[in-house]
Design a protein around this nucleic acid. Structure first.
Length: 279
DNA sequence: CTGCAGGCCGGCG
DNA sequence: CGCCGGCCTGCA
């Protein structure tokens, strides 16, 4: 059992805010989920994070990277709270959210599935894909499935994907998996600027502006990304545009100007707050 | 039965 | 280019 002192980390806010789909809360308030190649159990008591896993090697490193523990969120929350009273309120209600650093491939496929979909169904599809194409892992006597590698997901035909409940997104996934096994290299595009990276990701089938921003924020640590979904669009229009209809591009530009280098963190606080009916 | 859910694609003006 | 209809599927 690994123990890491942590501040400004709320597991409920972080693991149940729509940025990830594979964590489940246990009766004892701990969380069990998959990170890369291992099953991990997390619990916080008195500012100590307790971590256990089926795989001990480099566990601390993996956790620190995944939960973005090296970044000083306490200062960031203080800083962004000064932006305006809307943000101050949202941060106050949702303090402790962290932007995860997830597997890029898994995040791409997951958010392709998320388009025009609902969370229970998204989660179900990802679980089914993992069960069929991912590696099995035992943790505390129970069986879990890792998210498949690109190579393993290449085995899935369009029809197979359809049968796992992804609906019309079957051909998008099929095509994107092939692009990611060939012409598009995730390590290479990681070096690109925000703007160029987004254009590159949008070349993937089933990836538009919103999904690209989710991928960049939740797996490329691009903190200036600002995913605009229906929730964020509504709340932004209400808070800043007198409830008028506004183009996404304008919201995007204005938000970057307004929120600066932590635009994506602000987005998560706003998203979580509005989803829970707090702003 | 319709509407809709964390959008994207393709065709058209 | 920007706009707009259609779209798997499950659940209210």
């Amino acid at each position: 059992m690994l123990k890491i002192p942590v501040k400004c980390l709320d597991l409920d806010q972080t693991l149940d805010c729509g940025q990830c789909f594979r964590w489940k809360k246990e009766k004892d308030n701990s969380w069990i989920g998959i990170i890369q190649d291992r099953v991990v159990k997390l619990k916080i008591e008195k500012e100590i994070l307790y971590v256990s896993s089926n795989k001990e090697e480099e566990l601390e490193k993996v956790i620190k990277e995944y939960l973005d523990l090296e970044r000083d969120y306490e200062s960031i929350e203080k800083e962004i709270s000064k932006i305006d009273e809307n943000i101050e309120k949202a941060v106050r209600y949702t303090s402790g959210i962290r932007i995860l650093n997830q597997s890029k491939f898994e995040t791409i496929i997951s958010f392709i599935i998320s388009a025009n979909n609902n969370i229970p169904r998204i989660t179900k599809s990802i679980d089914l894909i993992s069960a069929k194409y991912g590696q099995k892992v035992i943790f505390e006597g129970k069986e879990y499935n890792l998210f498949p590698s690109v190579e393993n997901l290449l085995k899935a035909e369009i029809e197979d994907l359809r049968n796992l409940g992804v609906g019309f997104r079957d051909k998008y996934i099929y095509s994107s998996v092939r692009m990611l096994s060939g012409e598009m290299n995730l390590d290479e595009i990681s070096k690109l600027s925000d703007e160029t990276l987004k254009k590159e990701l949008i070349k993937l089938s089933g990836v538009g502006p919103k999904v690209a921003d989710c991928i960049m924020l939740f797996s490329f640590s691009r903190m200036k990304s600002f995913p605009i979904d229906t929730w964020i669009k509504k709340v932004m229009q209400r808070l800043y545009y007198n409830d008028c209809e506004v183009q996404n591009n304008k919201i995007l530009q204005d938000s970057l100007n307004r929120y600066g280098k932590y635009t994506g963190i602000v987005q998560q606080h706003l998203f979580q707050a509005v989803r829970k009916n707090l702003v």
